[in-house]
Nucleic acid binder design. Sequence first.
DNA 1: AAATTTTAATCAAACGTTTGTTTAATTCAA
DNA 2: TTGAATTAAACAAACGTTTGATTAAAATTT
Lengths: 224, 224
Amino acid sequence: MRPQFSDMLQESQGQILSDKKQHILNAAIELFAEKGFEGSSIRDLAARADVNVAMVNYYFGSKEKLFETIVEHRATFMRGKLDEIEADTTLTEIGKIDAIIENYVAKILSQPSFHRILYQELLKQEREALHENIIRIFVQNTHTLRNIIEKGIRKKVFRKVDPELTMATLIGTINQVMLSKSLCVMLVEPKDDFDPYTDDTFQKRVIKHLKQVMHSYLLEEGNR
Amino acid sequence: MRPQFSDMLQESQGQILSDKKQHILNAAIELFAEKGFEGSSIRDLAARADVNVAMVNYYFGSKEKLFETIVEHRATFMRGKLDEIEADTTLTEIGKIDAIIENYVAKILSQPSFHRILYQELLKQEREALHENIIRIFVQNTHTLRNIIEKGIRKKVFRKVDPELTMATLIGTINQVMLSKSLCVMLVEPKDDFDPYTDDTFQKRVIKHLKQVMHSYLLEEGNR
DNA sequence: AAATTTTAATCAAACGTTTGTTTAATTCAA
DNA sequence: TTGAATTAAACAAACGTTTGATTAAAATTT
């Protein structure tokens, strides 16, 4: 049977996948996020997606290629948005920082599984090509933020801060929240059925905290 | 041949391991940090430690138990020190924050491999018992920091901040730096042979940044 | 002190599973 | 009737683990 093109899903880079292929991909993202790449077997994945084991290799060629598809497909996240924010002349420097925080938090909280996969990969040192691809994106993003911060410093609205470590604080705070859902739940809400990543109040709380941290750290006394 | 008890290594919890067992353990920490638990095979480990494959099971019982030994052996890190700092009456609240930063950065930068293993485990959702053990320690540490921050707020030397997310910012910044050595090198130093984790200048830079962030965020205007 | 037994350490080989992948047959819509 | 989709079965390789033999130091007995 040919893929059902009647019900397609548009991907972030414009590619088009059949129902079934996309279905397997979604199941793989969840599984890899839970158990890691090596911890997930193709039989696990096939059972979860309710397809025959051979279908994974049929659609993606190999387990490794499936993984690369997942990572490279969406790893360019934030790139376009970051450039857009940096180039926006209607925003002040601190306004750009705020915009980055809002977009970054929303983006990451909306894809917790994919984000987990990315960071599991960053923590390891194998699959060198993939590893370096992810790093390259991080470095690009850091440079964009660096530009914004340095412009703010030149305009004397920002203090003379450490740009790279400021980026580390910004992303690191969000990552820390994303590390473990159960940790997150335990820290911020004693209820069991509470899902911080889909809860709007929690998202606003993270954004508010990050803005306050960045404002008090970045802004000169007079501009605060 | 029996273990050579003439040359022993004292462990953090007072346990004593033979030369060879400790040697395997050290190799395992490195290997797991690089490739993850499932990504590392016992044969890999045996080859790296230059011992027979059977010796791993002989000393540790199983691959899983070896892993638990690694994690539970040292996962209590910072616990005693944190309590000590909290109870220290000679320190002001911001002085306690500074002490935590100094200790935390030094501790983590001195054991990057072990730290990577911990976070790889936190990112996954399997091996539930181990996962929850790690989380419990995190929660305890967060409560200690929470106490310090809340005391500072009551004394009106701290602003009314979000205690849990402040902890996330503190730890998250360090974690972000620890995520990938190659990322870290690329961001902060263009030299290839530079090792940020053993470099004293870099450690001081991280400490300085974190203190500045925390001071400007926590302290009321008058106390800054 | 010598001889014997016991014990822990070490090893190559083999065990049974599980792994990712491929094959070859079959189904089924166009 | 054609060709993509789907399947159960089979594949070799890698996996964690166990085995049984061998070593040599320590403990015990003579």
